[in-house]
Amino acid sequence: MQRAMRLLEAASSHQYGAPAKQLARESGLALPTAYHLLRTLTHEGYLRREKGVFVLGEASEQLSSSGARHHRLGMIGKALEHWRDAIGVPVYFAVYREGEIEVVGVADTPANPAVEEWADFRETGHAHAIGQCLLGQLGDEERQDHLDRYPVQSITRYSVRDHRTFLRRLDGMRRMQPIVERQEYALGTVCAAIPITAGNTAATMAISLPSNQADRLLPAARQLQSEIGKLLGTLAFSISI
């Protein structure tokens, strides 16, 4: 495996490919061994042979993309963990992508657990702060398309109950202000979400607390919002994930 990886690394350093002898020399491998591994890597799709030289194949590109994605998710996770510890609340990061609400990362602790997703977050965006914040950033047509697919319905006794009332609520939201939701998605929980401008993509960071600590919600949200600019570079990576 290590020898094969050395060949792939050598091949990746040549934009227009390299012949077997050169890759063997750069990898420190005997030519017969290099030939055998190159045939295997080509058969598996990690390399392609074109006009006598070897270039990276589709499988290598997918592997590289997967590794970069993992790295970006790790960066986002560390950023969320930082604010979880600094503020003492669960912290969430979500985006609206390809017509769906997507929670990219969550940081919590056993003492301060995140909200349990007992009803699909994607289908209940009208009921939780994350969804309300994301839907509030959409244009009328895109928002209506979402609500046509996922109609407004009561999730708890505190939830908004109809389409028209929900749209009035969105229209009344103040730009760049935290969106607060109290027990609309999960009984015993209050949440706040902060809109984030990340290119053309709707994004949000959110926090949650037990309802008996509701007095902490807005101060914690404002603390996060006041520092959020430091995270934007890291969080923006998620848009390409």
Rank of each mutant, 00 (worst) to 15 (best):
Ile228Arg: 06
Gly28Ser: 06
Val106Ser: 03
Thr40Asp: 11
Ala203Met: 12
Asn212Ile: 09
Ala193Gln: 07
Ala129Met: 05
Ala114Gly: 10
Ala220Lys: 04
Gly17Tyr: 00
Ile207Ala: 02
Arg222Asn: 11
Ser208Thr: 12
Gly105Ala: 15
Cys191Asp: 05
Ser12Ile: 06
Val160Cys: 10
Arg182Met: 09
Ser238Gly: 09
Val89Thr: 08
Leu63Tyr: 06
Arg97Gln: 11
Asp140Pro: 09
Ser226Lys: 08
Gln223Pro: 03
Gln2Val: 12
Ala203Asp: 06
Gln223His: 11
Val91His: 00
Arg69Val: 10
Pro32Asn: 08
Asp145Pro: 08
Arg25Leu: 09
Ala192Cys: 04
Cys191Glu: 12
Thr234Val: 15
Asp145Cys: 07
Pro195Gly: 05
Ala186Pro: 04
Leu232Trp: 07
His146Phe: 15
Pro19Gly: 12
Lys51Gln: 14
Asp215Leu: 13
Ala221Trp: 00
Leu7His: 00
Ala236Val: 10
Tyr92Gln: 06
Glu116His: 13
Glu141Lys: 10
Gln132Ser: 07
Asp162Cys: 10
Ile101Met: 05
Val104Gly: 00
Glu184Asp: 05
Asp162Met: 09
Glu98His: 14
Ala129Pro: 05
Thr189Gly: 01
Pro210Gln: 07
Lys51Asn: 15
Asp148Ala: 14
Ser12Asn: 07
Asp215Ser: 12
Gly99Trp: 03
Leu147Gln: 03
Thr124Ile: 07
Trp118Cys: 13
Ser66Gln: 14
Ala193Gly: 07
Pro210Thr: 08
Leu170Val: 07
Val91Thr: 06
Gly28Tyr: 01
Arg216Tyr: 06
Val55Pro: 01
Ala68Ile: 13
Asp162His: 08
Ile228Gln: 07
Tyr35Ile: 11
Thr189Ile: 15
Ser65Gly: 12
Gln15Cys: 04
Thr189Asp: 08
Leu41Glu: 00
Asn200Thr: 13
Met205Gln: 03
Glu181His: 09
Pro90Arg: 02
Arg143Lys: 12
Gly45Arg: 01
Ser226Met: 08
Pro113Thr: 05
His71Ala: 13
His71Asn: 13
Thr197Tyr: 09
Gly229Trp: 04
Asp171Ile: 11
Leu7Asn: 01
Glu50Val: 14
Phe166Ala: 01
Pro151Tyr: 00
Gly131Phe: 01
Leu187Phe: 07
Ala127Val: 10
Ala68Thr: 12
Arg69Lys: 12
Val53Trp: 01
Gly199Ile: 05
Glu26Met: 06
Tyr158His: 15
Ser66Ala: 15
Ala34His: 00
Lys230Cys: 08
Met5Tyr: 11
His14Ala: 05
Asp85Gln: 15
Ala59Ile: 04
Ser60Asn: 05
